[in-house]
Design a binder for these strands. Structure first.
Lengths: 117, 117
DNA sequence: TTGACATATTCCTATATGAGCATATAGTCT
DNA sequence: AGACTATATGCTCATATAGGAATATGTCAA
């Protein structure tokens, strides 16, 4: 089997740096394709192709306006990524380091009681 | 150009579902390869190959112990993903909805004062 | 209608998989 | 050494890109 399609899910769609760049550019708000072409410094056809992938995974929405197509961010499509990676935040966050200390202490106390009985 | 190598960065490495599965299995702690083989239900060679990719992007570390190789999670390698996707949390989080309301109010007041002078 | 502008699609090619299978490497035990 | 276990690597094949170039589609203006 080959690698999964880039349109298989948000994880695959966002693995491509240019597509992340495009999404980043859309944080500021709705933008026509040519704006994105300038911002990511890629030829127009490739940008359109990337936008298609992002559309297919629901990361962006389009609105026609005259001859322009205004693309808008739909961050909700990225929630699965956020949810998944959140489980690993403990590995680097100091916030969790403190929590770990507390949990460790609780565990020690529990063990003491356990050996008492 | 073809798609970037899966070892290019954490984004690419983690685009593959089986590799996410492997990482998930490692949250519980260090595990030998055969454990992972059972847990993800894939043939041993494929698991070794996925582990290699994860090693190359730094998402896991190995420790030799006898004839076993114990793999351990290194979540820090996933931080770039967490950091990137966090910018989009606003799109779906109620937490930010409240913040948006406040910001909107502030903006309105500012406009009032602006038109006064 | 003709022309210009904005965007999408098609065709081509080099490249990188991911799984299946066979085999190599390495540690342990007898 | 020989057998057995644990893991890694090599090979083949079907498949999916990503970018480049050319072209198609759609819209507005004169």
């Amino acid at each position: 089997m080959a690698r999964a399609a880039t349109t298989a899910d948000a994880f695959n769609a966002v693995a491509e740096p240019r597509r992340r760049q495009i999404l980043d550019a859309l944080i500021g708000g709705e933008r026509p394709v040519n704006d994105l072409v300038r911002l990511v410094g890629l030829a127009q056809p490739q940008v359109s192709k990337h936008l298609r992938v992002l559309r297919e995974v629901g990361a962006v929405d389009v609105r026609h306006e005259g001859r322009q197509r205004l693309y808008r961010l739909n961050g909700r499509a990225l929630k699965p990524i956020h949810d998944w990676v959140e489980s690993y935040e403990r590995s680097w966050s100091e916030r969790f380091d403190q929590l770990d200390v507390v949990l460790e202490e609780l565990k020690l106390k529990e063990d003491e009681h356990g050996s008492d009985q």
